[in-house]
Design a protein around this nucleic acid. Structure first.
Lengths: 187, 187
DNA sequence: GTCTATAGTATGATAGAC
DNA sequence: GTCTATCATACTATAGAC
């Protein structure tokens, strides 16, 4: 079937960007309207439940993009270490080198949890699953792979927080450099 | 001099709690008023610039409390490993076992940065200095101590994010268990 | 120092014309 | 689908009485 030019998909992309820049509470309808170029009525046409629906769509899209960045490089060609470096590169792209934030963090703050219960938990679990898969691919037994995945997610989230606070991408880049070793050797 | 019963200090404590529970944007004056038991006018009496001043006071108090939890156990008696475990225990107390958030994270989201520029950066740097001191105390050369401190802060912030998202203190507790080893051996 | 009252603005959300 | 206009509510902040 022919590709339908979907302005909704474009809107979701812009909405995700806005949420990742502002967080849930500060991403007002006015800002989301400006970010998408759509009036409020159009936003409510695509997202009948307002911000709540927009947050869900943004979360779903973010998970899609992360899976593309984390999973697909792992199932490709090349040796394991090279593929893990591609994973790191994919993360760098998704998090804009450390300048963009993670919705797992932003959607656990303020009114977000009440508005979209369990959404951040689902995203975190998707991330953990992806990294546990990567660790298993690297040869670690299931239980150890889970621990490694937890540490990987912790390092990513923490590095993003610290980079944001220091207004420097250095902590994030530094963390990405040790990520392949963490997944390979668990250290 | 005799201790002056300061309702301002009590208010700061309650305000800090509210910011750490809600984040900057969702901590409305109504909530801060309810949390402190003070009317809006009283809040403006103590904090003439409103939320901005309250955020600064909350940040200053949080740094005080963390320094108490991180620094003081290190300069006390006992061998190094035991003192580092006290540090971990102090962190657990300050972050309520992983249930409370860190203002370094919350104050880099939404309107907070615009309202209190550099505040989160100053807090992050205070944390980094404290942990670099701990790592030097453990015998690491200055440059390596800085790297270890960066990893410690990353793990703390990341573990808090993940624990919040999963609604489980397990990642935070797990992280605290490996903190002393990280500061001692750098691994 | 704390209260009530309120200003002025922004918010999320909806109605109805086109 | 998109627009303008608008609702009711919440927000930060201030004024003035006590």
């Amino acid at each position: 079937m022919p590709a339908i030019k979907s302005s909704r998909a474009e809107a979701v992309e812009a909405i995700m960007r806005e949420f990742r820049n502002s967080g849930y509470d500060a991403a007002s309808l006015a800002r989301l309207s400006a970010a998408t170029g759509l009036g409020k009525s159009s936003l409510y046409h695509y997202f009948p439940n307002g911000k709540e629906d927009m947050a869900k769509a943004a979360a779903a899209r973010a998970v899609e993009l992360v899976v593309e960045a984390v999973f697909e490089p792992l199932t490709g060609a090349g040796n394991l270490k090279a593929r893990l470096q591609k994973t790191a590169a994919g993360l760098s792209k998704f998090y804009n080198g450390g300048k963009a934030s993670c919705l797992v963090d932003l959607f656990t703050i303020g009114e977000a949890e009440a508005a979209t219960p369990g959404l951040a938990k689902a995203m975190a679990e998707a991330l953990l699953r992806a990294f546990a898969g990567a660790a298993e691919e690297a040869g670690h037994p299931k239980k150890q792979a889970k621990d490694i995945a937890e540490r990987a997610v912790i390092e990513i989230e923490g590095a993003l927080v610290l980079s944001r606070a220091l207004r420097s991408t250095r902590p994030f880049q530094h963390m990405l450099a040790r990520l392949p070793a963490l997944l390979l050797t668990g250290a």
